[in-house]
Write a protein that binds this DNA or RNA. Structure first.
Length: 540
RNA sequence: GCGCCCGUAGCUCAACUGGAUAGAGUACCAGACUACGAAUCUGGGGGUUACAGGUUCGAGUCCUGUCGGGCGCGCCA
């Protein structure tokens, strides 16, 4: 049981003994920001003051008297009525043995027995990844690792849109480049893809098949599309894999559509459909939406929304307890219509959760670079990773809450890549490794004996908070909190290192304790960086 | 015009979901390696939390309005 839980129970009992009602969810235990305010604090007395008909400070004193909890060293009343808890040190020191024993599993929470489907990136296979995808990939992948740590059974999924207009344009664009290679003038429309990567694809077709597909017939039409999708998807997979991002399942829209799924789904939804101006609309306003949405265009073709409904029904049918989509914030209008569609099939409103990743605005050479796959002007994910490195890029995109807008200065990122805070964390890890190497042969003492100074206690407290940090970060879908934790840990370690000598051959007892502490820090750092998808090097 | 997100130090962002003196990084200034890695540490300046009201013991956080920015507004995806 964590300290927070112990204190909650003790407070609940204390309140009850005074005849006050304190539901456990109204009891908030916080880590004190200032060490002068002890280890934990609660505002309970202030919240119950009205109910008790007493001044907050007086009530706090009464509560404090009634609290019985062994791990508490002393209690103080402070400020407007805070109750501050000072915990006994021995419980804190146990954390070292626990970390060393559990190793890479330290901080992992027991299985919740719940399956989550997490979909992220799902970039269309029509061109290279840009920095918006980079942020979604970093956030989605870290979120998957974080939720796994928190005890969920996570399936990582990528949805491949291999149907529709964009794909037609892809096929047409490659065909145009292919014809260009045979000396014909380039014929690209406004809606086609102008990126130069398609030239390489066209060249590879010419190398492999010569002039076989110059004829304008159905076979060559389908060939260019198929070849384009396969090549673009292979590139996406490689770029993501090089970025440390992988998926358990790739679901193709073309597979979803097989077997008349769209027709069957329309039939299922028939009570929610109506015709207007030749098109078919879904009455999503009966649920959460502010407008009804077209599912079949007046030309008889389904809109993008229709197969998306089928896809989400498909995910739901696979037995997940919860669905999470990580989407760019420009899709926010999409969430209510999809939730509505799921509710038509009987799923609760919160079955589908959408985590939005805010747009990245990119500045280079003082001007904003607008995202555009068509014109090929956007900054490519691959170029950034090559220029700055995987660890620095991942840290940069995970460091801040994904819900905040991010202005990304490309020139600055290049200049500052060597001062990226990720190295601060990695350096702490490498220092730990170095110390453990130097101290090889000295037995580690994980009892925590003799670790009493300010820096040591500060590290111990932080280490003990690992699990509650995981819980909070997972609950808030906030991998950036793991980055903040890693940075804090590094800071506390560097501070300790600067003020204390670890290896002292004349004091082996303390050295043994400190080396065990170092070992624990190293493990915690490696686990935290692992969630971020950042490496933990032994040397730098 | 309507809806969603946002506005915090020169810049990029935090603030444990309403708590105590609003914190980090970066940039700038001044210090610290003849003992374990200076990719580090110590100290300093830098704020009317866009603005104006309101709610209460307490507001960067909640409510209303104003200003400013981004995104989205039935047959593009």
């Amino acid at each position: 049981m964590t300290n927070e839980e112990k204190l909650k129970i003790a407070l609940e009992k204390a309140a009850a003994s005074l005849g006050l009602e304190a539901a456990s969810n109204t009891i908030v235990i916080e880590r004190s920001r200032d060490t002068a305010h002890g280890d934990y604090s609660t505002n309970l007395a202030m919240r119950l003051a009205k109910q008790a008909g007493k001044a907050p400070r007086d009530l706090a004193a009464l509560l404090a008297e009634k609290i019985q909890e062994e791990a508490v060293e002393k209690i103080e009343i402070a400020g407007p009525g805070f109750i501050n808890f000072f915990m006994k040190k021995d419980a804190l020191q146990n954390v070292i043995a626990k970390i060393i024993e559990e190793g890479e599993n330290y901080g992992k929470l027991p299985s919740k027995g719940k399956k989550i489907n997490l979909e992220y990136v799902s970039a269309n296979p029509t061109g290279d990844l840009h920095l918006g995808h980079t942020r979604c990939a970093a956030v989605g992948d870290s979120l998957a690792r974080l939720l796994t740590y928190d005890g969920y059974d996570v399936t990582r999924e990528f949805y491949v849109n291999d149907c529709g207009n964009q794909i037609e344009h892809l096929g047409h664009s490659i065909r145009a480049r292919y014809h260009e290679l045979f000396g014909e003038p380039l014929q690209l429309g406004d809606d086609d893809y102008h990126g130069h990567d398609l030239i390489d694809i066209a060249k590879s077709i010419k190398d492999k098949y010569g002039d076989k597909y110059l004829a304008d017939n159905e076979e060559s039409h389908d060939f260019f599309i198929r070849y384009g999708i396969d090549n673009e998807l292979a590139k996406l997979k490689k770029d993501l894999a090089d970025f440390g991002v992988s998926f358990d399942v790739f679901t193709y829209e073309s597979d979803i559509r097989k077997g008349g799924t769209i027709e069957k789904t329309l039939d299922f939804l028939k009570d929610h459909l109506y015709e207007s101006e030749g098109a078919t609309f879904l009455r999503t306003t009966d649920y959460l939406d502010d407008k009804d949405r077209p599912v079949i265009k007046s030309n008889g073709q389904p809109t993008y929304f229709m197969p998306d409904i089928c896809y989400h029904y498909n995910k739901a049918a696979r037995g997940f307890d919860h669905l999470i989509d990580v989407l760019g914030a420009d899709h926010h209008g999409y969430v209510n219509r999809m939730k509505s569609a799921l509710m038509m099939k009987g799923y609760p409103e919160d079955y589908l959760e959408v985590t939005f990743v805010q747009v990245v605005r990119v500045f280079r050479d003082g001007a904003e670079v607008k995202m555009s796959k068509r014109t090929g002007k956007a900054i490519a994910h691959r170029d950034l990773v090559e220029d700055v490195g995987v660890d620095a890029v991942r840290y940069f995109f995970i460091e801040r809450s994904q819900s905040s807008h991010l202005d990304f200065n490309y020139n600055l990122a290049m200049e500052q890549s060597s001062s990226n805070p990720v190295y601060y964390c990695q350096y702490a890890h490498a220092r730990c490794a170095s110390l453990l190497n130097l101290g090889e042969g000295i037995a580690l003492d994980p009892s925590g004996k003799g670790l009493n100074n300010e820096e040591e206690l500060s590290i111990l407290k932080h280490l003990a908070d690992f699990s509650s940090m995981i819980e909070g970060a997972a609950r808030d879908r906030a991998p950036y909190k793991v980055a903040a934790y890693a940075h804090d840990l590094a800071e506390k370690f560097h501070e300790f290192y600067a003020k204390n000598r670890v290896i002292d051959r004349d004091n082996l007892e303390l050295t043994s304790s400190r080396l065990a502490l170092i070992k624990a820090v190293k493990i915690a750092m490696e686990n935290a960086l692992g969630i971020l998808g950042v490496s933990a090097p032994e040397k730098m």
